[in-house]
Amino acid sequence: MKSWKKYLMLFASVVVLQMTGFYALEQYLTPSGETSSFSAVAVAKVSVPIEEHLQPPDTALLYDIDAKGKTMAYYTHQSQVVITNQKKQTLGLFDLEGAQYLQWMDNGKTLFYFVHHWGKYTFGVYKVAEQELVPLYDMESGNRVSIEQLFKSQYAQSIYFLYTEDGQKRLGFYESMFGFKSIGLNGFEPKKTWFDEKENILSIQDEVGVVHRYQNGREMPAKSSAQN
Protein backbone atom coordinates (compact mmCIF):
# COMPACT_ATOMS: atom_id res chain seq x y z
CA MET A 1 0.00 0.00 0.00
CA LYS A 2 1.25 3.44 -0.84
CA SER A 3 2.40 5.41 2.16
CA TRP A 4 -0.10 8.30 1.64
CA LYS A 5 -2.90 5.74 1.71
CA LYS A 6 -1.61 4.42 5.02
CA TYR A 7 -1.61 7.94 6.46
CA LEU A 8 -5.06 8.59 5.12
CA MET A 9 -6.36 5.44 6.77
CA LEU A 10 -4.67 6.33 10.04
CA PHE A 11 -6.13 9.83 9.95
CA ALA A 12 -9.60 8.51 9.09
CA SER A 13 -9.43 6.02 11.98
CA VAL A 14 -8.46 8.77 14.41
CA VAL A 15 -11.34 10.98 13.21
CA VAL A 16 -13.86 8.12 13.46
CA LEU A 17 -12.59 7.22 16.94
CA GLN A 18 -12.74 10.83 18.05
CA MET A 19 -16.25 11.39 16.75
CA THR A 20 -17.44 8.10 18.31
CA GLY A 21 -15.99 9.22 21.63
CA PHE A 22 -17.70 12.60 21.43
CA TYR A 23 -20.98 11.03 20.38
CA ALA A 24 -20.85 8.53 23.28
CA LEU A 25 -20.05 11.34 25.74
CA GLU A 26 -22.92 13.45 24.42
CA GLN A 27 -25.30 10.51 24.68
CA TYR A 28 -24.16 9.90 28.24
CA LEU A 29 -24.73 13.54 29.19
CA THR A 30 -28.15 13.70 27.57
CA PRO A 31 -30.84 13.31 30.21
CA SER A 32 -33.42 10.62 29.53
CA GLY A 33 -36.66 12.16 28.38
CA GLU A 34 -38.86 9.60 30.03
CA THR A 35 -40.26 10.04 33.47
CA SER A 36 -39.27 7.25 35.78
CA SER A 37 -42.05 5.01 36.91
CA PHE A 38 -42.36 5.72 40.60
CA SER A 39 -43.59 3.42 43.28
CA ALA A 40 -44.58 5.14 46.48
CA VAL A 41 -43.22 3.57 49.61
CA ALA A 42 -45.01 4.38 52.83
CA VAL A 43 -42.97 4.84 55.96
CA ALA A 44 -43.34 1.79 58.12
CA LYS A 45 -43.39 2.04 61.87
CA VAL A 46 -41.40 -0.65 63.66
CA SER A 47 -41.40 -1.58 67.28
CA VAL A 48 -38.10 -0.77 68.98
CA PRO A 49 -36.41 -3.77 70.60
CA ILE A 50 -34.49 -3.40 73.84
CA GLU A 51 -31.07 -1.88 73.25
CA GLU A 52 -27.94 -3.56 74.52
CA HIS A 53 -24.39 -2.58 75.26
CA LEU A 54 -22.29 -3.69 72.32
CA GLN A 55 -19.67 -6.34 72.92
CA PRO A 56 -17.64 -8.05 70.18
CA PRO A 57 -17.63 -11.87 70.15
CA ASP A 58 -14.51 -13.54 71.53
CA THR A 59 -13.70 -14.79 68.07
CA ALA A 60 -13.47 -11.28 66.58
CA LEU A 61 -10.02 -10.59 65.15
CA LEU A 62 -10.60 -6.84 64.83
CA TYR A 63 -13.45 -4.62 65.89
CA ASP A 64 -14.52 -1.03 66.31
CA ILE A 65 -17.56 0.56 67.94
CA ASP A 66 -18.71 3.99 66.79
CA ALA A 67 -18.31 7.02 69.05
CA LYS A 68 -21.92 6.84 70.22
CA GLY A 69 -21.62 3.16 71.08
CA LYS A 70 -24.53 2.27 68.83
CA THR A 71 -22.91 0.41 65.92
CA MET A 72 -20.15 -2.17 65.91
CA ALA A 73 -18.08 -3.67 63.11
CA TYR A 74 -16.02 -6.79 63.73
CA TYR A 75 -13.83 -9.03 61.59
CA THR A 76 -14.26 -12.78 61.82
CA HIS A 77 -12.05 -15.81 61.21
CA GLN A 78 -14.11 -16.37 58.06
CA SER A 79 -12.62 -13.15 56.61
CA GLN A 80 -15.94 -11.37 56.90
CA VAL A 81 -16.90 -8.08 58.46
CA VAL A 82 -20.15 -8.06 60.42
CA ILE A 83 -21.90 -4.80 61.30
CA THR A 84 -24.46 -4.90 64.07
CA ASN A 85 -26.33 -2.42 66.21
CA GLN A 86 -27.63 -2.39 69.76
CA LYS A 87 -30.89 -3.95 68.61
CA LYS A 88 -28.88 -6.98 67.44
CA GLN A 89 -29.78 -6.22 63.83
CA THR A 90 -27.17 -7.06 61.20
CA LEU A 91 -26.66 -3.90 59.18
CA GLY A 92 -23.93 -5.28 56.96
CA LEU A 93 -22.04 -8.47 56.21
CA PHE A 94 -19.31 -8.61 53.62
CA ASP A 95 -16.11 -10.42 52.66
CA LEU A 96 -12.91 -8.53 53.36
CA GLU A 97 -10.00 -10.89 53.06
CA GLY A 98 -6.82 -9.69 54.71
CA ALA A 99 -8.37 -6.93 56.84
CA GLN A 100 -5.81 -5.28 59.09
CA TYR A 101 -7.56 -2.17 60.35
CA LEU A 102 -11.16 -1.08 60.89
CA GLN A 103 -12.38 2.26 62.20
CA TRP A 104 -15.68 4.08 62.10
CA MET A 105 -15.52 7.46 60.41
CA ASP A 106 -18.86 8.71 61.74
CA ASN A 107 -21.88 7.45 63.64
CA GLY A 108 -21.92 3.94 62.28
CA LYS A 109 -22.49 5.04 58.69
CA THR A 110 -19.01 4.86 57.13
CA LEU A 111 -16.38 2.27 58.06
CA PHE A 112 -12.72 2.78 57.13
CA TYR A 113 -10.81 -0.40 56.30
CA PHE A 114 -7.28 -1.36 55.39
CA VAL A 115 -6.54 -4.71 53.80
CA HIS A 116 -3.55 -6.72 52.60
CA HIS A 117 -4.68 -9.07 49.92
CA TRP A 118 -2.79 -10.77 47.07
CA GLY A 119 0.31 -8.77 47.95
CA LYS A 120 -1.56 -5.48 47.61
CA TYR A 121 -2.40 -2.99 50.34
CA THR A 122 -5.67 -1.13 49.87
CA PHE A 123 -7.63 1.28 52.00
CA GLY A 124 -11.21 2.29 51.51
CA VAL A 125 -14.58 2.62 53.16
CA TYR A 126 -17.70 0.53 53.53
CA LYS A 127 -20.86 2.61 53.19
CA VAL A 128 -23.49 1.03 55.38
CA ALA A 129 -26.51 2.71 53.77
CA GLU A 130 -25.50 1.57 50.29
CA GLN A 131 -24.00 -1.74 51.52
CA GLU A 132 -21.05 -1.07 49.31
CA LEU A 133 -17.28 -1.36 49.59
CA VAL A 134 -15.57 1.67 48.09
CA PRO A 135 -11.82 1.12 47.66
CA LEU A 136 -10.11 4.51 47.80
CA TYR A 137 -6.47 3.80 47.07
CA ASP A 138 -4.06 0.94 46.30
CA MET A 139 -0.80 1.59 48.09
CA GLU A 140 2.57 0.53 46.69
CA SER A 141 2.92 -3.19 47.00
CA GLY A 142 6.01 -5.14 47.88
CA ASN A 143 6.65 -3.47 51.22
CA ARG A 144 5.25 -4.37 54.62
CA VAL A 145 2.67 -1.77 55.55
CA SER A 146 0.66 -1.37 58.72
CA ILE A 147 -1.57 1.45 59.95
CA GLU A 148 -1.09 2.61 63.53
CA GLN A 149 -3.40 5.58 64.00
CA LEU A 150 -6.15 7.19 61.95
CA PHE A 151 -7.41 10.76 62.28
CA LYS A 152 -10.49 12.06 60.53
CA SER A 153 -11.34 15.68 59.95
CA GLN A 154 -15.09 15.89 59.52
CA TYR A 155 -14.92 19.57 58.64
CA ALA A 156 -12.20 19.30 56.00
CA GLN A 157 -13.49 15.91 54.82
CA SER A 158 -10.05 14.36 54.85
CA ILE A 159 -8.11 11.71 56.78
CA TYR A 160 -4.58 11.30 58.06
CA PHE A 161 -3.07 8.05 59.15
CA LEU A 162 0.25 7.19 60.69
CA TYR A 163 1.65 4.06 59.15
CA THR A 164 4.80 2.00 58.93
CA GLU A 165 6.25 0.93 55.60
CA ASP A 166 9.19 -1.43 55.83
CA GLY A 167 9.98 -0.16 59.30
CA GLN A 168 9.83 3.50 58.30
CA LYS A 169 7.17 5.72 59.82
CA ARG A 170 5.14 7.66 57.29
CA LEU A 171 2.04 9.81 57.26
CA GLY A 172 -0.78 9.18 54.81
CA PHE A 173 -3.20 11.91 53.78
CA TYR A 174 -6.37 11.34 51.78
CA GLU A 175 -8.92 13.80 50.48
CA SER A 176 -11.55 12.68 48.00
CA MET A 177 -10.89 15.47 45.47
CA PHE A 178 -7.09 15.30 45.48
CA GLY A 179 -6.48 11.66 46.34
CA PHE A 180 -3.70 10.13 48.41
CA LYS A 181 -0.41 11.64 49.46
CA SER A 182 2.34 9.93 51.47
CA ILE A 183 4.68 12.04 53.57
CA GLY A 184 7.95 10.72 55.04
CA LEU A 185 8.61 11.55 58.70
CA ASN A 186 12.34 11.96 57.99
CA GLY A 187 13.35 9.33 60.51
CA PHE A 188 11.84 10.81 63.65
CA GLU A 189 9.83 8.63 65.99
CA PRO A 190 6.37 9.97 66.95
CA LYS A 191 6.04 10.25 70.71
CA LYS A 192 2.69 12.01 70.98
CA THR A 193 0.03 12.94 68.43
CA TRP A 194 -3.00 15.21 68.58
CA PHE A 195 -5.40 16.44 65.96
CA ASP A 196 -7.13 19.82 65.87
CA GLU A 197 -10.16 18.99 63.75
CA LYS A 198 -11.39 22.56 63.47
CA GLU A 199 -8.07 23.88 62.21
CA ASN A 200 -7.41 20.61 60.40
CA ILE A 201 -3.88 20.44 61.85
CA LEU A 202 -2.27 17.16 62.85
CA SER A 203 0.56 17.63 65.36
CA ILE A 204 3.20 14.97 65.95
CA GLN A 205 5.72 15.45 68.72
CA ASP A 206 9.03 13.67 68.25
CA GLU A 207 11.43 12.22 70.87
CA VAL A 208 13.25 15.53 71.38
CA GLY A 209 10.08 17.56 71.86
CA VAL A 210 9.82 19.15 68.42
CA VAL A 211 6.24 19.36 67.19
CA HIS A 212 5.75 18.69 63.49
CA ARG A 213 2.47 20.09 62.21
CA TYR A 214 0.64 19.01 59.08
CA GLN A 215 -2.24 20.68 57.30
CA ASN A 216 -3.91 19.57 54.07
CA GLY A 217 -1.17 17.01 53.47
CA ARG A 218 1.71 19.48 53.86
CA GLU A 219 4.13 20.02 56.73
CA MET A 220 3.88 23.42 58.37
CA PRO A 221 6.83 25.23 59.99
CA ALA A 222 7.80 23.30 63.13
CA LYS A 223 7.49 24.72 66.62
CA SER A 224 8.71 23.40 69.94
CA SER A 225 6.45 21.69 72.44
CA ALA A 226 6.88 24.63 74.85
CA GLN A 227 4.83 26.77 72.48
CA ASN A 228 1.82 24.50 72.71
Partner: peptide
Protein backbone atom coordinates in the same frame (compact mmCIF):
# COMPACT_ATOMS: atom_id res chain seq x y z
CA UNK B 1 -31.87 10.69 56.81
CA UNK B 2 -34.89 8.64 57.81
CA UNK B 3 -35.66 6.42 60.78
CA UNK B 4 -32.05 6.02 61.86
CA UNK B 5 -30.34 5.54 58.54
CA UNK B 6 -29.06 7.61 55.67
CA UNK B 7 -31.49 6.88 52.88
CA UNK B 8 -29.55 9.17 50.53
CA UNK B 9 -25.99 9.11 51.82
CA UNK B 10 -23.57 11.99 51.22
CA UNK B 11 -21.55 11.75 48.02
CA UNK B 12 -18.23 12.06 49.81
CA UNK B 13 -16.85 8.57 50.48
CA UNK B 14 -15.53 9.77 53.84
CA UNK B 15 -19.04 10.19 55.20
CA UNK B 16 -21.27 12.91 56.59
CA UNK B 17 -20.22 16.54 56.71
CA UNK B 18 -21.21 18.78 59.64
Amino acid sequence: WQDGSLTVPPSNPLGERP
